[in-house]
Nucleic acid binder design. Sequence first.
DNA 1: CGATCTGTTGACTGTTATCAACTCCGGTGG
DNA 2: CCACCGGAGTTGATAACAGTCAACAGATCG
Lengths: 260, 260
Amino acid sequence: MQAGFAFSKLADRLASLATVAADDLHLLADMASTIAHLSSHQIILRHGDDATQCCLLLQGYLSWQDAESTDGQITSICVPGDIANLETLYRPRVSGNLIALGPTIVALVPHRFFHDLSTRSPAMSRALLLMLITDLAIQRNWTVNLGSRDALARVAHLLCEITMRLQNVGLARDFRLPSPFTQSDLAAACSISPVHANRTIQELRRCNLLQWQGKTMTITDWPALVRLARFDPAYLGIRPNYDDGPPSHLGPLTADVALA
Amino acid sequence: MQAGFAFSKLADRLASLATVAADDLHLLADMASTIAHLSSHQIILRHGDDATQCCLLLQGYLSWQDAESTDGQITSICVPGDIANLETLYRPRVSGNLIALGPTIVALVPHRFFHDLSTRSPAMSRALLLMLITDLAIQRNWTVNLGSRDALARVAHLLCEITMRLQNVGLARDFRLPSPFTQSDLAAACSISPVHANRTIQELRRCNLLQWQGKTMTITDWPALVRLARFDPAYLGIRPNYDDGPPSHLGPLTADVALA
DNA sequence: CGATCTGTTGACTGTTATCAACTCCGGTGG
DNA sequence: CCACCGGAGTTGATAACAGTCAACAGATCG
């Protein structure tokens, strides 16, 4: 990924949340940023730091990990196009550690850029706000996931969410997603033990819902996975009429197929 | 509570999040609202509704309940001064049901008021944004609570959070809090069965951490409760130098006492 | 080519869910 | 006034899901 196109996934993301004019999106081209390559489990922001930059994910996955809990509970996962610490624009102190799940590329963008952007473009300001609101909706959904689903449905739901969020920025359209994370990472995100995560994934494989070979996961039965997880993508806040967006459109962007 | 002072707890809340001038707070006096009295478990916003008003909680508790999960999972709890559906200012469609926990008084404020307020006062706009960001932080914390604490610590943590949020708007300064909710409500918020919630509360009582008689709960050993829950109020985003706020200041506003 | 991390399996344990019964309480109507 | 009723709280017995421990296999990487 070239630095010049650092903002392309972000543009996809914002366009999926709100109607923004091409002129607005072009403002992103002015984005000054430092590109950083991270290795797996590297920490990029530490609990208690005061952030002065936004961390825009270009490639790979990032996760927020709770600093206190002994089991290293993961509280959220970022996909390309996400700004991991958007809220630090207004409250710089970060809580939890931001760590890379697998090899990852991020763009570090000074807070000032987004503050200026918000001032210059009301549409972009609104889109960023919707991004924050979506973060809230996703977090609320994680509460439901941990609270009311068993291990199998929990893992299935997480995979549905990641798949759909990737597809929203033009990735994994063929239901093949990079999976550089470990089973223990997945366990930490679903609040189950690594051993149980292993058995759960085996179960998903046994039911022919997915394959996980090396660093690539393939969802082989999307409708069944959606049904098992009782996954309803409405909470992701993607505009209903948004299917003109990302380029490589090989699969459907809805999960309605299997919701009876 | 008189309608004329509908905004007082909100003013406390906003002042605890950001520095706002008295002039800014006086803008709240223009707030036109409809006061509504709710009975226990009454639904005020339904999953799928499009909100045109913000629901400002004046007295009692509100909770968001997931619409899908069979066990009626509660995903968040509001205390007086909270705006339950702040995010609907920018994304009107509500997800989940907003229900009253016990008898409750709310002020329904048209979206327009807050949009105008944001335009007229940058400080208030910022305070509202911080309120939204705090909602996110709280939600993230619930993820940790469900994910990495056992039933006892989970209930303890929820009670710590509610206590501190009440104290932030001048309530429960003597660690006596209204508890009109049922044990089943508490169970739904902590994702445990009602039976287990009962046993957990008995355990808390047995350890002399709290009393729960009728509709009032008394925290009898706050430091021990904080320690048990490993509660750290930093995530609530209350300004460190904020102790000049609410009037009836009978108790300390920190939980540091017992964090070794 | 050995060290280390990840994945896999089996046996056992423990927390919590479920089921069922019973009590207590406040309200309601005869 | 009392009988009844429904909801909330309480208790015990049993079951299920998931955690822990331990050992080994397989991959990856220096």
